[in-house]
Computed example of a mutant assay.
Amino acid sequence: MTLSRRALGGALIGAGIVGTGAYVALRDNPLLRGLTGNATELRGFVGGEKQPYLANPQVVDLLRRHGIVLHSTIAGSVEMVRQRSLIDQRPDFLWPSSSVMTEMAKMSGLSIVRDQTILNTPIVIYSWSGVVEGLVGAGLVTRTADGHYEVDTGRLIGAIASRARWQDVGVPSLYGAIRISSTDPNRSNSGFMFAGLMLSALTGSVPDAGDLDKHFATVRTVFEQMGFKSPSSGKLFDQYIAGGPGSEPMIVGYENQLVEWAQADRTRWERIQAGKGARPLLIYPRPTVYSAHPLLALTGEATALIDALLTPELQAIAWTNHGFRGPLGEQTASAPPGLAELLIPEVSATLPLPGAPVMLDLIQRLDAGT
């Protein structure tokens, strides 16, 4: 049977309509957009500790399959929600490293379409095997039955604030007063959170303005003894690894940083573990605080990025390769080989940070030195 010219034309038009409709459906569906060659380009600021994760070729590919291409720029968590030069660039999203930043972003006048915690990592203290052994011997640090290291946060703050000497806490090989390094709390989230952790630990609950007045002098003393404070958690961790126990005996960082560093070069990690030199170790403050990593979608298009990053595949990569726990603080896959014994499966001894107004007052006082 042959089709008339009119019937054939109608069939072709109908097929065109169906094809166009299918294309539009694919184009507008973020899960299928990558199949059509179309992608939404999103621009935003991220904390530097997450940039290696976003640069992971597997992550880039999976996001592309979700129809998303990211152009991310590193900025301090505090800076990205407060600094007008960054806010005025009208980013599609912000990805800071603390849930407090969501409230601070609103205080800065930002309109948030959607916010969602994507990753979590606890604040930890990095030190070295020889230093930790001395601190264990002096009773300042304890080793659990599972082989993890913990330190009473209040006792540690007290030792630093009272200018106890290293030799008094079991580490005679180090000179001078016991000290710890963190990032600048007015620029970087790990320093920001350490300041909040100290205030919460000294208070024993969620601090208010009166608690800040009461304990500020102690927090200021700890920060003053640090000297120069790095603007970036990643840079501070690099200084710690390069400087060794003499230069950086203890620093404040994120749990994920050691996992990511070890996974980046397994041969190097195994060589260090088998060697006789100083080995990097992490100590869990008890209590500590979780560094939640909320993604703030400032445009409707950026909400698709939240959904993509919460998929099981991207969550598993975040933990296995980069050490980031899931939104609830859970390990989203098996612990990396050779690291399981160093990582607490579930970090339960935590305190909430002070609210945004108290934290803002705290860092402003630290910046002013008063």
Rank of each mutant, 00 (worst) to 15 (best):
Y126D: 11
H148C: 08
M198S: 07
I112C: 04
M193Q: 14
S188G: 07
Y175E: 13
W95Q: 04
S200P: 12
V78K: 00
G134L: 05
M107H: 12
R82N: 11
L86H: 07
H148K: 06
I87H: 11
G170T: 09
L63S: 05
A195Q: 04
F192W: 01
V151T: 06
I157D: 00
G154M: 07
F93D: 02
H66M: 09
V124P: 10
T102P: 14
I180S: 07
D168S: 15
G67C: 06
D61N: 07
D168R: 09
I180H: 03
S98I: 12
E103L: 11
V113G: 06
H71S: 15
G130K: 15
D152L: 02
R187L: 14
W166E: 00
T203S: 13
Q83S: 14
S190D: 10
Y149R: 01
L110C: 06
D168K: 09
S98Y: 00
K106V: 13
G147Y: 05
F192L: 00
S181M: 09
V136G: 02
G76P: 03
L197C: 11
R179L: 08
I118R: 02
T183I: 12
Q89T: 15
G137T: 15
S162A: 15
A145R: 10
E103A: 13
V171Y: 01
S85E: 11
T142D: 04
S173L: 04
